[in-house]
Computed example of a mutant assay.
Amino acid sequence: MPIARLIADMDGLSARLDAALAELEASGIKVARAGLLDANGEVVQIAATGGDAAQMRSVIDKSFGSADVLVADEPIAAPQLFVSDMDSTMIGQECIDELADFAGVKDRVAAITERAMAGELDFAGALRERVALLEGLDESAIAQCLEERIRPMGGARTLLAGLKARGCRCVLVTGGFHHFADPVAEMLGFDRVVANRLGVAGGKLTGEVVGPICDSATKRDTLEEEAAAIGDAAITLAMGDGANDIPMLEAATYGIAYHAKAKARAAADGWIERGDLTNALALLGLSQHDGANA
């Protein structure tokens, strides 16, 4: 049976909820129950006995487009595996854009990044084009960029701590670079990193990507590989914001788009647009009490 959970503005919530329930019934989805997930919480839960998750998601999106939402089949359970994008998901920046600022080409690189994340450009080609613009930049700029500009997204530490407290394996998989992803993973508590490698020679960037490119297929394959190691019934959570995250969002038990581009949001089981990463815990019905402060 499909179930929807949402965190919405409280002003006028009752009227909007009534309208949504009527719309669900009109679309052939019989509502079994609706109300707060727990007495002291902020998560509204709507459970149905008919229809499917896709139908329910469409109605919820129409009625509560500004809410943070997860629509899935009941019961919703704690994930055993979490696979996440890094840039603009676990951290608030796009690392390659910030690094490009040190080379004086941020505007050019950021414009390519924006189109790639929106799904308008081939990811691998766009990555190589951006990296080529960094040729000759001192490798020391990476450490400076990390120290001065790269910051965790709000709630990232709490989310990781909350998931890991329940035995969840956490994997950071990014179209960015190990130079950034490795320290970010250590800072937040990820168990594994899958990323690209910047070419460096003589203390300067070569303008090339070394080895195979970590792209959308890599992200999906990583999720499936890690899930297989857990077992056939592994419960998985994926999170990302761009078009290259779509395959893993679709492959996960729960795919959540975080302040995402339109294509990623449309492909996901839910989205977070009004809150921070801790709302993922709330939508999954998990307490933040085991987590660290964000």
Rank of each mutant, 00 (worst) to 15 (best):
T158S: 15
I213A: 06
N244T: 08
A34L: 02
E42D: 14
V194P: 08
L223R: 09
E135P: 08
A141L: 03
E208R: 14
M187E: 10
R33N: 14
K263N: 11
T236N: 07
E23W: 09
A111N: 06
E225F: 00
K164H: 04
T158W: 09
I60R: 12
H289E: 07
A22M: 14
M248Q: 09
V171I: 15
L286C: 03
A185T: 05
L133H: 10
A22D: 13
M56P: 06
R115F: 04
T158Y: 07
L6G: 05
D241M: 15
P212S: 02
A78S: 14
I76M: 07
A260P: 14
D276R: 11
D138G: 06
A292E: 08
M56I: 03
D38T: 13
V209R: 04
Q93I: 15
A243G: 11
E147T: 10
D290Y: 00
D101Q: 10
C214F: 01
D191N: 13
C95K: 03
A201K: 12
L134Q: 05
G242M: 10
I60G: 11
E250D: 00
C168V: 11
D11C: 05
A280D: 00
F177V: 07
S84K: 14
A48M: 08
G211D: 00
A252N: 07
G176S: 15
A233I: 00
G202R: 02
G231L: 04
T49I: 12
E225G: 02
A181H: 08
S84D: 09
A282F: 04
A251S: 11
A252D: 00
N196F: 04
W271E: 09
I96Q: 10
D52Q: 08
F177T: 04
L286Y: 00
R16Q: 08
R274N: 03
M117F: 11
R149D: 05
L81E: 05
